[in-house]
């Protein structure tokens, strides 16, 4: 432990974490706190995606389905329970169970397919959830969505800020232990060479299903936080763009690093906010999505390994 404290990397991390804890002291602007809470919850979502893409080598286009399951569990149960604590806890249990079951079933039937087909079939499953949410209007109010009350604890934005931050740190620590555990090593082996791992005697499909189940459950936690941050939920939570956000965040930061997912969430959320605010400056920026699209293109062309990847490469050379 003492040696670790001397490591500049650890020190930097501790410093950044401390900075995140004291941020609310410097600002009491609600919108800034909101932005940071959103960054943290999307970082959780991106972390779950990094476990799949970065550590196991599974590319899913349907990760939003777990995000949506979390969001709708929170929304529907809190609406029924009128924002009671008990219903909030119930929502967590329901979201975790549902995402566990769904990810298990989807994983078991589709992880046998090759990469491209797995990506397409997860896209299809997510689309099914999207359609379900749109058509089951009595429960979800369709595209219009619905607002719902949240437990009084979250009325204070500061409490919500710290909830997201602490959950992010907790999940980050658990995941960094997990990816270096024996099981985590096997997942990385699968990413590097699936056939060889299989021939070493590991049931690859079991480990892949395990990874998608963990990834799905963590993503549903992010979904719960997202719904609570907006106090509103609609079909957009199942949208492909949510999956693509997670993909982009993971890649921008650097895949298979965990830190990258958090960093990516900062970059993307800031970019979203900053670019959409430009619209007030000049009418030409009303089409700010063009700039966002250009960001996608430029990142792939110039930072294919992400920010952390580019940094590491420089250090090595």
């Amino acid at each position: 432990m003492k040696n670790q404290l001397k490591n500049p990397k650890t020190l930097l991390l501790l410093l950044l974490t401390a900075l995140m804890f004291v941020t609310p002291l410097f600002t009491d602007s609600r919108s800034v706190l909101m932005l940071f809470a959103q960054i943290y919850l999307f970082a959780i979502f991106a972390l779950s995606y990094d476990l799949l893409m970065g550590y196991t080598g599974i590319i899913s286009f349907g990760h939003a389905m777990f995000f949506g399951i979390g969001a709708y569990s929170a929304g529907i149960l809190l609406r029924i329970g009128d924002g009671a604590w008990t219903h909030f806890l119930l929502a967590i249990v329901v979201a975790l169970l549902l995402s566990m079951v769904v990810s298990f079933i989807v994983g078991l039937i589709s992880l046998r397919l090759s990469h491209t087909f797995y990506a397409m079939i997860t896209l299809a499953f997510a689309e099914l959830f999207f359609i379900l949410a749109e058509k089951w209007r009595s429960l979800t109010k369709g595209t219009d969505g619905f607002t719902f009350p949240v437990p009084s604890f979250f009325h204070d934005r500061l409490n919500f800020y710290y909830t997201c931050l602490i959950l992010l740190i907790f999940i980050f620590l658990v995941l960094s232990r997990f990816v270096n555990s024996p099981v985590g090593r096997i997942l990385q082996a699968i990413r590097e060479n699936e056939q060889r791992t299989e021939s070493l005697g590991y049931k690859v499909i079991h480990y892949k299903v395990l990874a998608t189940v963990y990834g799905g459950m963590i993503a549903s936690v992010a979904g719960i936080l997202y719904a609570i941050s907006l106090r509103f939920v609609n079909t957009a939570v199942f949208g492909v763009d949510k999956t693509l956000d997670a993909l982009l965040m993971t890649i921008i930061g650097g895949t298979g690093t965990l830190y990258g997912a958090v960093l990516g969430s900062f970059v993307i959320e800031f970019a979203h906010k900053w670019l959409s605010e430009l619209a007030d400056v000049h009418w030409i920026f009303e089409r700010w999505m063009i700039l966002f699209g250009l960001v996608y293109i430029l990142i792939v062309l110039f930072f294919p390994k992400g920010i952390l990847g580019a940094f590491r490469r420089r250090k090595h050379s």
Binding site: R287, F292, I297, L301
Partner: peptide, 28 residues
């Protein structure tokens, strides 16, 4: 945008999504 990413599915997804955003906004 496609030539630099032949054979790299993840990059293809991202870069073509970017192109999609740009082209759809340009229609507007």
């Amino acid at each position: 945008t496609i030539q630099p990413v032949y054979g790299n599915p993840v990059s293809q997804i991202l870069i073509t999504m970017g192109v999609m955003l740009v082209l759809s906004e340009l229609i507007k």
